[in-house]
């Protein structure tokens, strides 16, 4: 399954990229699975996505929780809590 990943703000800087296209293994079906998979990259990925770290996610531009399902060609974004206004 191919998905497009987007990162913003502090996470974009720490991960060293704003976007990437990834081919995730079949067992990655939810955002929780995706986070677990990304965490295996080690370094800042493991550190920033560890349990208890504050980040938010969106699937196809709607805020989504860890239980949200992801499908082929989805746009998934990971970003810090928002600070606009």
């Amino acid at each position: 399954m191919k998905i497009r990943l987007l990162y913003f703000a502090r996470l974009r800087e720490l991960f060293g990229t704003g976007s990437e296209s990834v081919d995730v293994p079949d067992e990655v079906r939810t955002l929780a699975d995706l986070i677990a998979w990304l965490s295996t990259r080690g370094g800042v990925w493991t550190e920033q996505l560890a349990p208890g770290r504050a980040y938010r996610m969106a699937v196809n531009q709607d805020m989504a929780g860890l239980e949200a399902a992801i499908r082929d060609n989805d746009e998934v974004a990971i970003f810090p809590p928002v600070t606009g206004g």
Partner: peptide, 25 residues
């Protein structure tokens, strides 16, 4: 405004005398 502050994806980065920093929620 209250919902914008918590739900609209904007992020502020400040330049201060101590350097750049992302604003915390």
């Amino acid at each position: 405004m209250d919902y914008l502050k918590t739900r609209a994806p904007f992020w502020k980065k400040e330049v201060t005398p101590a350097g750049e920093r992302w604003v915390d929620a």
